[in-house]
């Protein structure tokens, strides 16, 4: 899973895609995932981190994560 190169994410969860000129807003969880994706962390690493720090079990997180990735693909934010 790779983000497009020049995607910019602000501190406040605002995402700008210079390729399309479109903007998006992210909640805390979404912002964190985008940050990890930018750092090219694997799905496993991301999932572990969330399960350790948040009130969420692995199955729920992975389910939500996959759904989120599908949305990113639909918005053409990923490569």
């Amino acid at each position: 899973m790779k983000l497009k190169k020049n995607i910019a994410v602000s501190e406040t969860g605002f995402l700008f895609d210079p390729n399309s000129g479109e903007s998006f807003s992210l909640n805390e969880t979404g912002k964190k995932i985008l940050q990890f994706l930018k750092e090219e962390k694997s799905e496993n690493q991301i999932s572990e981190w969330f399960v350790k720090n948040y009130e969420v079990d692995q199955a729920t997180f992975e389910n939500n994560f996959n759904d989120f990735i599908t949305v990113l693909q639909n918005f053409r934010i990923t490569e």
Partner: peptide, 16 residues
């Protein structure tokens, strides 16, 4: 203590 979890969300901003 673990943090409260909300599923990840991204929404497109439609200006105007």
């Amino acid at each position: 203590e673990k943090l409260k979890y909300e599923r990840p969300i991204i929404t497109k901003i439609n200006a105007g």
